[in-house]
Every structure is written in structure tokens, then in C-alpha cells.
């Protein structure tokens, strides 16, 4: 089900933990499947010197967090800002389609952590961000049944292919 790279990052997650007095912290939670991800940044001279994560979630969520930290470590902020969820999935040699909807939140957490850093720096206060549903459509514009992967028309709540219902 998962690629070798995903399993490697799941088995040996890189950069697990917290950073005390972090320059920026980003938290993302997915209300649909319950994954939670926290990214801690140590930034100096606009470079991510260190990055750590804590994640509650499935194998994919843990691998995504781990891979994200590898992609972001040592990058300048402007480079790091360009990292997308798609980049993380690609570096992991792909994720199951339904996990693209759900567990691929790493870049969102990173961007939230960078915003937190920039807000702190400029003295701006921001309300904690609600996880938005935007990431659900990141992979492309089509919707798929999360159960059988059949393509759904916009607004469909019932999959005629497998009789999955959105209220399930």
C-alpha cells in the first residue's frame, strides 16, 4: 500500500521532537480523519537551521512529517515557502489517493510555522488558524470517492459505484 520511501520514513522518522523556544511553531489538524501535526522551526538569518515535528496520525502522516522536515532543513525562508504538499508526496514516491486528501498536511504546517515566525518578528498577533479544507483539492480539481477511488461529480454525496455515502 505504501512506497518503500514512505515505510522508511515511517519506521525511522527524521527530526522527531520539540524545539524549546522555537522561532516559529505551526499546528495543523485535519478534522476529517483526525491527523494532528506540529512543526517547530529554529530560524537564524532567514535560514531554517533546525526543524522538528510531532505528529498524531497514520503511517502516511508520520512519513509526510518526516519527509517535510528533510526538505525544509537548511533552506532559506523564501525557498521553504515554495514547498508544497505535492512536493512532499512526490519526494515520498507517491501516496495512496485517499491519503492525499487526508494526511498530506506537512507543507501546510510548515507554512503556518513560517507565518508564526514572521508574525512574531513583526510583532503581529494572529488568531490560531483553523485547518481549512483547501488541501483536499490540492492534488487536482477532481473529486474521488474516498472508499473506492471512483470519480465523483461535484457535489455528489453518494458513490453509485460502491454505495459509499458521505455521512458514513
Amino acid at each position: 500500500m505504501y512506497s518503500k520511501t514512505v515505510m522508511d520514513h515511517f519506521r525511522n522518522p527524521r527530526n522527531v521532537g520539540e524545539i524549546k523556544d522555537a522561532s516559529g511553531v505551526g499546528e495543523i489538524g485535519n478534522p476529517v480523519c483526525g491527523d494532528m501535526m506540529t512543526i517547530y522551526l529554529d530560524i537564524k538569518d532567514d535560514v531554517i537551521r533546525d526543524i522538528k515535528f510531532q505528529t498524531f496520525g497514520c503511517g502516511a502522516a508520520i512519513a509526510v512529517s518526516s519527509m517535510l522536515t528533510e526538505l525544509a532543513k537548511g533552506k532559506t525562508l523564501s525557498e521553504a515557502k515554495k514547498i508544497t504538499n505535492k512536493d512532499v508526496a512526490k519526494a515520498l514516491e507517491g501516496l495512496p489517493k485517499n491519503k492525499l486528501h487526508c494526511s498530506n498536511l506537512g507543507a501546510d504546517a510548515l507554512q503556518a510555522a513560517i507565518r508564526d515566525y514572521e508574525d512574531k518578528k513583526s510583532g503581529k498577533k494572529r488568531e490560531p488558524e483553523e485547518a481549512d479544507e483547501k488541501h483536499k483539492h490540492d492534488h487536482d480539481d477532481k473529486c474521488y470517492c474516498p472508499y473506492c477511488d471512483a470519480e465523483l461529480a461535484e457535489g455528489d454525496t453518494f458513490c453509485k459505484n460502491c454505495s459509499f455515502h458521505e455521512d458514513e
Binding site: 483526525g34 491527523d35 474516498p146
Partner: peptide, 13 residues
């Protein structure tokens, strides 16, 4: 029976 493993990504009914 976690949602993540269910295929449908929903918590067990």
C-alpha cells in the same frame, strides 16, 4: 478500526 485505515477515512460507525 481507525478512520485512517478504514479506506473510507471515517471513524467506525
Amino acid at each position: 478500526r481507525s478512520a485512517c485505515a478504514s479506506g473510507s477515512l471515517r471513524a467506525s460507525h
